[in-house]
Design a protein around this nucleic acid. Structure first.
Lengths: 109, 109
DNA sequence: CCCAAAATCAACCATATGGTTGACCTTCCC
DNA sequence: GGGAAGGTCAACCATATGGTTGATTTTGGG
């Protein structure tokens, strides 16, 4: 239950938390600012951030009375590798990956 | 909550279920055979299989009185792509991916 | 000094997991 | 036909999520 990979998957299973992670891609944010776009109490967001921290997906650092949240990509990377390695990275996945690269190129235009 | 990607992540958050998926990499299996290595009731495994089915990670087909479980790689692929695309597939991920390919090559020897 | 802002804590509630056991339904096979 | 194998269902229990509100703590600023 306290397995690191368990915690990462569990943390990623919630859309609010995935959205928070996406927001943090832009820049580090204070807890209040993270909470702002959501129709949810600050306390609820605080809990979500705790779950993300526990999973190692973000880190929180307090400066003054503001607590800053920043992404920690490593945890996600490990889990992503678990998924990729699943099935000896069979051809199907490779195809998907190439399609993905294609899509990215198109989007970048 | 019923978001497909939510269900996949939630399904993958349990070590028993991940182990079941790994077992199914080898071959399709009957429910009883899936349950055999676990120190857990058949009913518990049945529930896990239901969660995996709901997430689209496996499919179950009944032939006679035996219900066969088989992997469905697509759901995992999609979720894997979500993770890879996270962060516009930044360099860090690319490095990880190349390291992964390297490891695979070594293992294949 | 005092108030307001930034967060967390605590208590509470509803719902979902993760497991158990026991009853039940199907289907195979002698 | 009847028993046993293959599974699911139902009820139950403990614990974790996901949310609320209200109180509390800490810190910044006028």
């Amino acid at each position: 239950m306290s397995n690191p990979i368990d915690l990462v998957f569990a943390a990623l299973a919630d859309p609010t938390r995935r959205e928070i992670l996406t927001m943090l891609l832009e820049d580090d944010m204070a807890v209040t600012d993270v909470a702002e776009p959501f129709e949810m109490s600050l306390a609820a967001i605080s809990k979500h951030l705790h779950i993300l921290t526990r999973a190692g997906l973000i880190a929180q650092e307090k400066r003054g009375r503001v607590k800053w949240c920043k992404l920690q990509m490593d945890a996600m990377k490990d889990t992503s590798l678990w998924m990729e390695s699943f099935g000896q990275f069979e051809c199907v996945n490779l195809d998907a990956f190439e399609k993905f690269l294609e899509d990215q190129t198109i989007q970048a235009k």
